[in-house]
């Protein structure tokens, strides 16, 4: 019994860490641009498929493939902002929802042309045997996932607290007008937010790649769940997103383990509705403290 519960916990934390990284992407973008990017999940997919090509295909060393993939995807994010978001004449939320949904379909279509309809699988980052903890199996890739998610979170935290650019971004997030008055170039900050947000998406795709089937249509559901996680913790907050991600992952894994696997996808959306109705600011009430 204990080992079963422990097993659920491990898999919950693993998935949760991935949701957390995706949620961070949503939150960063939302806090500096008030935009919800419905195409965010596709950047997760692009990250995973880039890794398939660079690491699996070209045989580049993993760290290099990792970094190249993240940068490649983040650059795509910049192009996306320039071509599809900046050009919008009437930035009303309905218009932006449809544009980002359109972008999502477009990116999926392009990926299908490049990588085909087949699913790929990748080996774990390192080929250690699974660890045995009181009878529960812990995959090395799970450790990698949690480790990388943590490193990302800490680096982002330091970036926002310690660097001038980070503080400028935070200022822009709090008040665009005030930031503009103090001479912070808000346009650059928005670009930077897109860069980081889509980059984080790519990181999520890369770390999940070894434990899932990688294909052109993997992104949508991951993106939506990442959004649910962000809402659960507190949209717009770094640590809120991480909290939301882990919580959602654990809820899902226990829900599936205790009830039924058919529930898996429903849990995230039930949580989403509940949080929207009861506490739209998320657990940490991010609405009032919209910042990182």
């Amino acid at each position: 019994m204990t080992q079963e519960l422990l097993q659920y916990l491990f898999s919950g934390i693993t998935n949760g860490a991935i949701y957390a990284v995706i949620a961070i992407g949503f939150s960063m973008l939302y806090s500096s641009t008030e935009l919800i990017n419905f195409a965010h999940g596709e950047f997760v997919m692009l990250g995973a498929l880039s890794l398939v090509t660079l690491w699996g295909g070209f045989g580049l060393p993993l760290p290099m493939a990792f970094i190249l993939s993240v940068f490649g995807v983040a650059l795509t994010g910049l192009v996306f902002e320039r071509l599809a978001i900046r050009t919008v004449r009437k930035p009303d939320h309905i218009v932006l929802i449809i544009i980002t949904v359109g972008a999502s379909i477009f990116l999926r279509g392009v990926s299908m042309l490049i990588w085909g309809k087949d699913a790929y699988s990748l080996p774990a980052f390192t080929d250690h045997p699974p660890l045995d903890l009181i009878g529960a199996r812990l995959l090395p890739q799970s450790i990698w996932i949690v480790f990388i998610a943590l490193v990302c979170a800490i680096l982002l935290h330091l970036f926002f607290k310690k660097t001038l650019t980070g503080k400028a971004m935070e200022a822009t997030a709090i008040s665009k007008k005030a930031a503009w008055l103090t001479g912070i170039p808000s346009e650059k900050m928005i670009l930077l937010a897109f860069f980081f947000s889509t980059g984080m998406g790519a990181v999520a795709g890369i770390i999940i790649a070894p434990i899932t089937m990688v294909s052109y249509d993997m992104g949508t559901m991951l993106g939506l769940k990442g959004f649910c996680a962000a809402m659960l913790g507190g949209l717009g907050s770094l640590w809120g997103s991480i909290l939301g991600g882990l919580l959602l992952g654990i809820l899902e894994s226990f829900g599936v383990g205790i009830f039924s696997s058919s529930l898996k996808d429903a849990i995230a959306f039930l949580v989403l509705l509940l949080i929207l109705y009861v506490r739209p600011g998320g657990i940490i009430m991010a609405k009032d403290v919209k910042r990182f």
Binding site: A84, I99, M112
Partner: peptide
């Protein structure tokens, strides 16, 4: 899919 996505974006822009 590519064309469909493009049409959505372009019309909205």
């Amino acid at each position: 899919m590519v064309v469909y996505g493009l049409i959505l974006m372009v019309v909205m822009i």
